[in-house]
Nucleic acid binder design. Structure first.
Lengths: 196, 196
DNA sequence: ACAACAATTCATCGCGTGTAGAGTTAACTA
DNA sequence: TAGTTAACTCTACACGCGATGAATTGTTGT
């Protein structure tokens, strides 16, 4: 049982390994946060030498950034905001809890890392500001759209935190639709209702 | 300019140093999170040798626990829950944003650390479950009290995250009372209103 | 076929970390 | 006042980390 592969380039597949490293990075960062995740652990999970990680992605910070390249928020949110206004709260809540708050999601990894790593916090903040809040400005026909979506985001982020990170039973156990039923009216009010 | 103090016990004050270490620990953990905060940095801020920290508190984990001994939630919440039910939402929101979400608060430090450190997450979860949610059960005259307070907590925690950790402008800039005005109605609905 | 290049492992460096033990001085007790 | 205990600093060890440079092997262009 030879534990280590022979050195030198591997036959066949070009950037398969690269993707495997990124997947391992997402998993490890997500499970441990930025500082606790080690390049050695990521390399191990990808069955690869630690130096290869560094060869492909440079520093640990830029590996994190590469592993968390965020999708275009415009494309994500457009379907929600183009539907009937009365359903936006429910749509947004379900979307968020299904896609973003799923355990193992890159978003959870980002949130976790953002709590202690300034770089990750900046990434998340800029994504929220330019993308999320920006999309609101373009699609939301109401006063103070950015403030409205900031309130929505804060609530939904708190639910993620309680459900996936803290694992408070009251938030972690119920199926998603149960949470949607309770939270969506609040989100709807923040989006289209009377503030304050 | 002699940088180091002579060895041996210091004259006078017994447990002053101990408190200084705890204060430095709170500040450092709060600013950097659990893993990034180093015992050396904490000792430095307390003008003390790193080994003394270890002498007093043992491991880093138990130093963190000692620095974040949480107040009795019963005492904290009783005044709020014993007032007029119609004002509970506003009271709870203001209390939380003023005391807990203040930058530099131990609670922020706990939340930050909980994102990446399982021990801190357990501390926070147990505090929330036994204390916060427990207090709700005893004081809240409504159906599903624990679920109600879990919803309140998740929203408020999300606001802390956005305001203090991510520093999203829409949440970080407005004075507390502005946020109270918008959020309190939601909290009130979660506490006493119709769920879902 | 040959040269250039990219992918990969290996060996290792330097650093900062948490922690431990030994030595020194003050406070406490009888 | 003698002896014990507790507070405190010094020195240092062992470990794991991120990062680097060289060596090895496959791919690609000509």
């Amino acid at each position: 049982m030879s534990r280590t592969r022979p050195p030198g380039r591997r036959p066949g597949s070009a950037d398969v390994t690269r993707e495997e490293i990124l997947a391992a990075a997402r998993a490890t960062f997500g499970a441990s946060g930025f500082e606790r995740a080690t390049i050695r652990a990521i390399a191990g999970k990808a069955s690869v030498d630690p130096a290869l990680v560094h060869h492909h992605f440079g520093t640990k910070e830029s590996l994190f950034a590469a592993a968390h390249e965020l999708p275009d928020p415009e494309a994500m949110l457009a379907p929600i905001f183009s539907g009937p206004p009365a359903e936006m709260g429910e749509q947004l809540t379900r979307f968020y809890l299904t896609l973003v708050a799923a355990p193992g999601s890159p978003a959870v990894s980002l949130i976790r890392a953002a709590a202690t790593n300034e770089g990750a916090a900046r990434m998340l903040r800029e994504f929220l500001e330019r993308g999320f809040l920006g999309a609101a400005e373009r699609h939301l026909e109401a006063t103070e759209p950015r403030r409205r979506l900031a309130l929505c985001g804060s609530h939904l982020m708190g639910v993620v935190f309680g459900r996936v990170i803290l694992e408070v039973p009251e938030l972690a156990e119920p199926p998603i639709e149960d949470l949607v039923a309770v939270i969506a009216p609040t989100i709807q009010r923040y989006l289209t209702g009377d503030l304050g």
